Simulated scan of single mutants.
Amino acid sequence: MFQYLGVAARHSPPYPLYIVHVFGEPMSQTLLRHLCMLREIPRSPRSIDCQTLQSRLAQQGYEVTVRSIQRDLNSLSSVLPLISDGAKRQGWSWMADGGEVGLMGMDAHEAMTLKLVQGQLAQLLPTATLEHLQPYFTQADRILAQRGGKFAHWPDKVRVLPKGQPLLAPQVSPEVQSAVYEALLGDCQLDIEYMRRDATEPKRYLAHPVALVLRGQVSYLLCMLRDYEDISQLVLHRIKSARLIDAPARKADGFNLDAYISQGKLGFAHGGQVRLEAEFHEHAVQTLMETPLSEDQELIPATLGTSGRNMRWLLTATVNDTGELETWLNGFGKLCLRWRKVPLGQAANN
C-alpha cells in the first residue's frame, strides 16, 4: 500500500509538502486512481461532487463506485487539506489556505522564480487568475524561508529598473482593471466611461476589447469603440467605470498585436518608417554599437581629430518616425551633433 508522508497536524497550516510514496511494491492502480482523483478537486470555494468525480475518472479508464470515492475522500481528508461542504450531494475542495497546491513538491529554484515574477504578473493577469496563483506564491515564500539556502536571498539581490526618469504608476481602479481583463479573457463587450485628455466629464462608450499593452507604468487598452473599425488606445487609469456586457466583442479583422507595435503605433508616431541620419561625437559610439537602433544600423567614421582619432561618426538606420525617437536623440545632448529624418522613398532615390 501507500502512505502520505511529511504531513503535519491537519489543523495547523501552513502545511508542509505532501509526498506520495510506495513502500516495497510498484505504484498500484489504486494509487494512480487516487492521484487522478485528487487532481480533479478544485480549491475552495469551488467544489466537485463524487458523481462528477466518478464520471471524470471513468473517462480516464478508472471504473469505481460513488461509495468507494466517498470512502477514499473521507480517508484522505484525515491527512490532506481536503474539506467537504456537507451538502446532500457532497462537494469536495482543497482548503483555501491549504498550503501545497500540487501533488509534486516545489523546489528552491521554482520558489525563487515565482517570487521574482510575482510583482510583474499583477499587471499582466486577470484578478481571478492571480487569486488562483496566490497559494503558489504562499508556498514559494515558505519554501524559501524553510530551505531556500542560497536562493532565499536572491530576490533581494536583483532589480529591474526602467530607463529614464522613474515615474509613479497612475492609480487604476481595481474594479475597472478586473472588468477589462475579464472582457479580454472572455472576448466580451464593455460598457465604459472614459475621461479623454483635457475633458471635464467622462464620456460613455461601448468598447470591443482587442488587446492590452503595458508601456512603462501605463496600461493601454486597444479596442474598437461603438461601430468604428479603427483601433483606439485607451489608458486604463482614465477609464472611470467599466461593466461587462454578456455579448461577444467584434473581432478586428487582420489585427496582429506584434505588427501593430512594430509599426510604431504606440510610440507617438509622426509618420511611417524613415531613414535616420545622425552625427555623433566619439564618446557616444560605444553605446550606439552596444545597443543599436535597428538591424541595418551603420556607423561610419566622419572626421578625424588632430590626434588622428575618429572624433565624429555618422549613424544611419531605418526606424519608425516617433516622438520617442526624438526624445532618444535629444537624450545624448551635445554628443548628438546633428540629425535628420529622410522618408524611405526619398532615401532610396538618393
Rank of each mutant, 00 (worst) to 15 (best):
258 D>Q: 14
305 G>L: 05
44 S>N: 13
196 R>L: 03
78 S>V: 04
281 H>K: 14
197 R>C: 08
61 G>H: 10
225 L>T: 03
50 C>D: 02
218 V>I: 14
281 H>A: 12
214 L>P: 01
278 A>N: 10
308 G>P: 04
206 L>F: 04
343 P>A: 04
345 G>K: 15
67 R>V: 04
143 I>P: 00
248 P>T: 04
102 G>K: 08
43 R>K: 14
320 N>W: 02
311 M>P: 00
4 Y>L: 00
258 D>P: 03
211 A>H: 04
213 V>R: 08
339 W>F: 12
138 T>W: 15
303 T>M: 06
196 R>Y: 06
149 G>L: 12
26 P>E: 15
205 Y>G: 01
70 Q>G: 13
104 M>Q: 08
14 P>K: 13
110 E>C: 10
150 K>L: 07
326 E>P: 01
133 L>R: 06
131 E>Q: 14
58 A>F: 05
297 Q>E: 11
344 L>F: 06
350 N>I: 13
190 L>Y: 02
344 L>P: 07
204 R>I: 01
111 A>S: 06
231 I>T: 01
87 A>K: 09
250 R>T: 01
318 T>K: 11
210 V>P: 00
211 A>C: 01
1 M>F: 10
168 L>N: 15
265 K>H: 13
16 P>W: 00
218 V>Q: 05
298 E>A: 14
27 M>E: 09
71 R>E: 00
111 A>P: 00
318 T>I: 02
240 K>D: 03
293 L>S: 08
108 A>M: 04
229 E>R: 15
63 E>N: 07
324 E>D: 13
158 V>R: 14
32 L>Q: 12
26 P>F: 05
104 M>Y: 13
180 V>M: 11
117 V>H: 02
246 D>H: 10
330 N>Y: 13
112 M>N: 07
147 R>W: 10
186 G>Q: 15
185 L>V: 07
129 T>V: 15
65 T>G: 07
129 T>S: 14
276 L>S: 03
61 G>S: 09
30 T>V: 06
23 F>M: 06
192 I>Q: 00
152 A>L: 07
54 Q>I: 04
28 S>M: 05
306 T>A: 09
242 A>N: 11
336 C>E: 07
73 L>I: 10
347 A>V: 05
221 L>A: 02
177 Q>P: 03
182 E>H: 08
344 L>W: 10
244 L>N: 06
282 E>L: 10
257 L>F: 02
328 W>S: 05
28 S>Q: 15
197 R>G: 07
180 V>S: 01
104 M>E: 11
14 P>I: 09
105 G>W: 00
40 E>Q: 12
37 M>E: 09
127 T>I: 05
75 S>C: 11
209 P>Y: 00
53 L>T: 00
332 F>R: 15
99 G>M: 07
